[in-house]
Design a binder for these strands. Structure first.
Length: 484
RNA sequence: GGCCCUAUCGUCUAACGGUUUAGGACGCAGCCCUCUCAAGGCUGAAAUACGGGUUCGAUUCCCGUUAGGGCUACCA
């Protein structure tokens, strides 16, 4: 392992952080931390046409929310900045100039129209489309003449005409690609911005990046990058190309087949712990049967050797289960805080103020039943307000002729206790049932319906205890009236 | 089309030539527990894409086929 370990996450700010991007960022982060190295964030904004307002801030915010903090990057600083490519234009220009002087790159005056024509012709002739290298060997005098005349040009790198390159990938092993299938890639666009291929090489070198951990979509262009490293006389970093994240139909994970923006999941109430745990396991596993991991535990366990080669389908069911697990691991107080935060955002209808003790009771009752924080009340609205209707199918099954009388006797029994607790609620019910020669079940089910309006939920006595004597009686009387 | 990558239950995956009747998890089904729903426990259905090699022995190594994906821009 080269030391020091320095890795980077280099997204383009074209929108929101994608879950695939989150995983790439996470793997880089885990790798860096596992090896006590540095994790750098670099913004690759070399395509002006795709710039999205606020995307950088959003990206950083989302990364921060997920707990993936970078050591160097925009807003954070570091000795190899600036960390935004649009602020490094002169650096790229110097390097391009050097390449041109060395004869490893050349100015190309071909217009987009001509390029397109060439491409169409090649496709029509069933050839693989590639630049025909018209400008590759232009006499220097002509290049000089046309440039001074103000003719627009781009700079292309020279790719060897014959031979092949084999490079090592930490995940895939040796990969070989023939030079002839590689284009003389544009490295400097006519607007003066570099393309990804030039910028990534220059920046990774200048920022002393030791390992390039990125998505598999970059595998075919890696030889171009290595050619550039050689032209510059630089050491080539180690590469690790991550398998792609897939839609259920196995195509590359994309919008329109479900949510891909991390903030969408965040808005839906997913815990960062669950999201991070989940994406970490898409393409990696610790080698044993543990599945529940905190970020710290992931740092400890993560190694690139255990990253798989094949794409992984983003399976929401498993994410939900992980959210449930991580939610359960939270302390009552943490959940209370999150629940209150959720309640404050709700319409006034349910914003009735409840004290912490009551809410803590709701949390205890719903612990095993909630996958999301909102479900603590969403699945049990009766804790916040009396039922406005009663599930007809439950009423049909549980609400019998003798029910009203039974419940009335229960109310009477309850009134004998000044402040009934769980035991008293239970004792009162059992004695009432016994006196009426009924089984507890004959009362429990209709009573549940009366106080909650539904047929399922936490233990009945837990519900009654939480609601309290007064509210319980109020709800019973109301149900008797409405279900008569 | 060309190039590259990939291929174990529906999904995420374990197995780094033999300890395998291919293990775990999610989901699904059943049973138990039980006032319901959950949670929990137990059980079950469910996979090595196909064909050739190599080997005493292949999920594991090699080749081919097939399938899927990625790349093929003055996008990243």
């Amino acid at each position: 392992m080269p030391s020091p370990v320095r890795v980077r996450f280099a997204p383009s700010p074209t929108g929101f952080l994608h879950v695939g991007g989150l995983r790439t960022a996470l793997y880089n982060y885990l790798f860096a931390k596992h090896h006590h190295g540095k994790f750098v964030l670099r913004i690759e904004d070399t395509d002006q046409s795709r710039m999205v307002e606020g995307a950088v801030e959003n990206l950083i915010e989302t990364l921060h929310w997920a707990g993936i903090d970078f050591d160097e990057g925009p807003g954070k600083g570091g000795e190899f900045g600036p960390y935004v490519q649009s602020q490094r234009l002169t650096i790229y220009h110097e390097h391009v100039k050097k390449l041109v002087q060395q004869g490893n790159a050349y100015h190309c005056f071909c217009s987009p129209q001509r390029l397109d024509e060439v491409r169409q012709r090649q496709i029509a002739m069933k050839l693989s489309p590639s630049y025909d290298r018209t400008c590759r060997d232009l006499p220097p005098s002509e290049v000089e003449r046309r440039r001074t005349a103000g003719e627009t040009s781009v700079v292309r790198m020279k790719v060897p005409l014959t031979g092949e390159m084999t490079f090592d990938d930490m995940i895939r092993g040796k990969v070989t690609i023939a030079y002839k299938v590689l284009d003389d890639q544009v490295i400097l666009k006519s607007d003066g911005f570099p393309t990804y291929h030039l910028a990534v090489v220059v920046d990774d070198h200048l920022m002393k990046i030791s390992h390039v951990i990125r998505g598999e979509e970059w595998l075919p262009s890696t030889p171009k990058h290595i050619i550039l490293y050689r032209y510059f006389g630089w050491d080539v970093p180690l590469y690790a190309h991550l398998p792609l994240l897939l839609n259920p139909d196995k195509s590359k994970l994309s919008k329109r087949q479900g949510d891909v923006a991390v903030e969408e999941y965040r808005a839906k109430g997913y815990l960062k712990e669950a999201i991070v745990n989940f994406v970490a396991f898409l393409g990696w596993n610790p080698g044993d049967e543990r599945e529940l991991f905190s970020v710290e535990q992931l740092v400890e366990a993560f190694t690139i050797e255990r990253v798989g080669k094949s794409g992984a389908v983003f399976n929401i069911e498993k994410l939900n289960w992980l959210n449930f697990q991580h939610l359960r691991m939270k302390s009552d107080n943490d959940v209370l805080l999150m629940l209150k935060e959720y309640l404050v955002q709700q319409p006034t209808k349910t914003r009735t103020s409840f004290d912490d003790k009551y809410l803590l009771g709701v949390i205890a009752a719903m612990r095993e039943r909630a996958t999301f924080v909102r479900e603590f009340v969403e699945k049990s609205p009766y804790f916040l307000e009396p039922p406005s209707e009663y599930d007809p199918s439950v009423a049909k099954k549980r609400w019998k002729q003798e029910t009203p009388a039974l419940l009335k006797s229960y109310v009477e029994a309850l009134s004998r206790y000044p402040e009934p607790g769980k035991e008293e609620f239970e004792a009162a019910l059992k004695s009432t049932a016994e006196a009426a020669k009924k089984s507890p079940g004959d009362m429990i089910h209709p009573l549940r319906l009366a106080v909650s309006g539904v047929g399922s939920g936490p233990g009945l006595y837990d519900i009654l205890t939480l609601l309290g004597k007064e509210e319980t009686i109020r709800r019973i009387m109301r149900a008797i009236e409405k279900l008569a």
